[in-house]
Design a binder for these strands. Sequence first.
RNA 1: GGCGGCAUAGCCAAGUGGUAAGGCCGAGGUCUGCAAAACCUCUAUCCCCAGUUCGAAUCUGGGUGCCGCCUCCA
Length: 494
Amino acid sequence: MAIQIYNTLTRKKEPFVPRDPGQVSIYVCGITPYDQSHLGHAVPSIIWDAIRRFLEFKGYKVRLIQNFTDIDDKIIARAQDTGEDVFEISQRYAEEYLGAMDALGVKRADLYPRVSQEIPAVIEMIEELVEKGNAYVVDGDVYFDITSFPEYGKLSGQQLEELEAGTRLAVDERKRHPMDFALWKSAKPGEPAWDSPWGKGRPGWHIECSAMSLKYLGNGFDFHGGGGDLVFPHHENEIAQSEAYTGEPPFARCWVHNGLLQVKDEKMSKSLGNFTPLTDLLAEYPAGVIRFYVLSSHYRSPLQYSEEKLEEARRGWERLMDTVENLKHLLTSMEKLGAPEGDGLSPDGVETPAIRQLAEAVESARTKFIAAMEDDFNTASAIAALFELARSVNTFQGQAADLTDGERRQSVPVLREAAAVFQQLGGDILGLIEAKSSSSAAQELTEALLDLLVEVRQRARDQKDWATADYIRDELGRLGVKLEDSPLGTRWKL
RNA sequence: GGCGGCAUAGCCAAGUGGUAAGGCCGAGGUCUGCAAAACCUCUAUCCCCAGUUCGAAUCUGGGUGCCGCCUCCA
């Protein structure tokens, strides 16, 4: 089954056909680093991280580029307010953003280009557009002439006449059409500026993404992504200037827009002031919870933010994590019985229903998960497949005590498969299951001591010394360690 | 005013014309020395109206409500 993806440009799902066989090129609009990043910024990053991991899982070589807009009115305004240097500000917040992405387990993009480092490419592109008659110069500013691009509006479905009628701001009289947009802005005193054929100035907002994506991915790259609020005018303008420039549409083959994060039915945004900084959020929630929260709805749907939603996500995520831990524990107990005889998956008539059912559940989960991801990256549905497997694993655990030693041995390969599915699909692709960080000596000691306490408590239980057993459990509980008894032994968890 | 999108149980959320995945919460039950965890059972006819169809949450038309964009925004 081929991957199907919804393309904003055509408004329907299309089969994915990469420009270059076996390779996928992706450009995601990044942030303007002038303030702290919030969850809304993490949404596309997490979504694209899952998409790129899935594409890699499918065997594609992925090249992902995400820009930083490090020259912008807001950064300049901020610099003028604080007296700080423009580039110090953008540098600091860009680093903070990357730090948060690392904490969220988002794989780094292959490149994070910054406009300030790409001025020659920008100028080259604008020059060409002026030469071709798609742009005009007025007093050191350069504007794109949208009437020169007949297909203007094809991404957002806008009509030129309506746009003109709906203009809300006072229109710059020097522009030929109200919606003509700046490719180059002449410098005002005190602003960062570069020399250009039109005098000192700086790039407009839209041109950078065109210049950098064309430079680093080439024309006709596979995916162009970003938040739904960028469809118009940003991406519309990118298409206009890029396709006018290259003369060879399409600029990007598939446009992918994610739903926006909302707070109390309003978009979370810096300008509305209704945001929680990512750094604060990360202090309160494990990365896996935040990813779970974002990925548990479809990427194109708007996402409602609230503490309750995150708490709900935490409980769901913990259940999944508990099952994964359960599974490890179960596998360890079974492995103690020695290597399996045969593969356990098809031991003609010897297998017990419990094992067969688990084996079927593993296969079913894998199949459903992959089918869900192939269908427009339906992470919500993919997660549901993981939960179904979780239930099967837990059910099996309940039955495990009744199995014979031989059957237990047979279950080992199936359990290994189940663990692999969780790791590969939930871990490698969705990034929900964190690989245990290499444990320090102190951690190892702690674990050994806990094992010892559990063992001591077990001896007490064997002698029906419930007082001692409960004392150990209660006191450990006070220290944040939970004990759970099962027929296969006691598990502790922090 | 224009453009785009969304409306599924108490909450969140999938859903490709054939009698509604999954999660959270809640109720009951099983297991357990107790506890925890887990498992089982229960909780919707899909905003409204009309139409197409043997059959629609899924298609068409009309309402209603909400969101995004048209100004910087992931």
